[in-house]
């Protein structure tokens, strides 16, 4: 049984489909990378797994299960027991993700108290252990520090400590390093991967950083305009992309433009609420688009482990199969 299974999950805000019928699953001990540009629905789909989509957002799915439990069918109270304990999440901007009015210790202990309980001394002890685990020096004194006294990297470590406080089986990291500087980024990712391996958690890593996904993720999902356009083993997807969007994404990396004066870029922008094309969502920007692409929505094709949502998937050499 998969740890987390999503089947045809959609998140809508009024008429706007932020996430459009996406399906994927995460196994225990697996690192799943989700990549895509801003506004492609990466964060929103994860927030829907956490149950954090607010009115007027609506979540619909054929299936949304965590370890066999139907997350959409259960009551709010029951769901909160899973949120924060079995499924935990860390966010993009650590500096604003901690409550400025409470100490680091209070915020870690709150997570422990909600799901595990225990007396004051035990909770205190456990919180110090967690701070040590995420590599914060002098954890005893840091317990009484306020968030504004911490650096960005430290704050993100505290966020990780809160997230792993109740030994989650699944950790969702939503662009955990975007707001940090480069040297700190590597440390935070190392920490996350170490913890993931130590605790055999499932890790969903949402990021813009393709190189990072290629390095640490087992499988990868590429999202565009709320849909999954391609999925498969990370190494395969990046070495031989089948979707023109993935190909363009890889080509836009500065590394692949070595020696050229300009970076490769697709013309146009991600379609918004009012300019969604009738056929394939990428068709207005796709260099290989045919008549059929403009009219007909492409189905996801290929084996479950290597899917692509395209009428003209690319072959091994990166040119479309006619």
């Amino acid at each position: 049984m998969s740890l987390l299974t999503l089947d045809k999950l959609s998140v809508t805000f009024g008429n706007f489909r932020a996430v459009d019928q996406i399906s994927y699953s995460v196994e225990a001990g697996e690192v799943l990378g989700i990549v895509g540009e801003s506004g492609s629905g990466k964060s929103v789909s994860s927030l829907s797994v956490m149950g954090l989509i607010d009115h007027p957002g609506k979540v619909k799915a054929a299936q949304l299960t965590f370890m066999g439990q139907d997350l959409l069918a259960m009551g709010e109270k029951q769901r909160r027991k899973i949120t924060g304990s079995d499924i935990a999440m860390i966010f993009q901007d650590p500096m604003t993700s901690l409550n400025p009015c409470y100490t680091v210790g209070y915020q870690i202990i709150e997570a422990l108290k909600t799901h595990q309980g225990g007396n004051k001394k035990q909770l205190q002890q456990r919180a110090i252990e967690l701070l040590t685990l995420v590599g914060i020096p002098a954890p005893e004194t840091r317990m009484s520090a306020y968030p504004h006294q911490l650096s960005g990297g430290m704050s993100q470590r505290v966020m990780i400590a809160i997230a792993i406080a109740c030994n989650p089986k699944l950790l969702i990291a939503d662009e955990p390093t975007t707001a940090l500087d480069v040297t700190i980024q590597a440390q935070i990712i190392d920490l996350l991967i170490n913890l993931q391996q130590q605790k055999q958690m499932g890790l969903v890593l949402i990021t813009h950083d393709l190189a990072l996904v290629a390095e640490v993720a087992h499988r990868v999902i590429v999202m565009y305009a709320g849909q999954i356009v391609e999925s498969g083993p990370a190494a395969e997807v990046f070495s031989t992309p089948k979707h023109p969007y993935t190909q363009a994404l890889l080509a836009s990396l500065p590394e692949s433009a070595a020696g050229k004066s300009r970076l490769m870029a697709l013309p146009g922008v991600v379609p918004g609420q009012f300019d969604r094309p009738s056929g394939c969502l990428l068709s207005p920007r796709c260099p290989y688009a045919t008549e059929r692409c403009h009219e007909e929505v492409p189905p996801a094709q290929g084996p479950l482990t290597r899917q692509v949502k395209c009428h003209t998937p690319l072959d091994m050499n990166g040119s479309p199969i006619k």
Binding site: R80, T83, G84, F91
Partner: peptide, 23 residues
């Protein structure tokens, strides 16, 4: 953002509002 963090901890909605937001 910290309200989202509080909710992601799975704490009760009243606690999010009174303890985290109101203060």
């Amino acid at each position: 953002d910290y309200i989202r963090t509080a909710r992601a901890k799975g704490i009760a909605p009243w606690r999010v509002i009174i303890i985290h937001a109101l203060r």
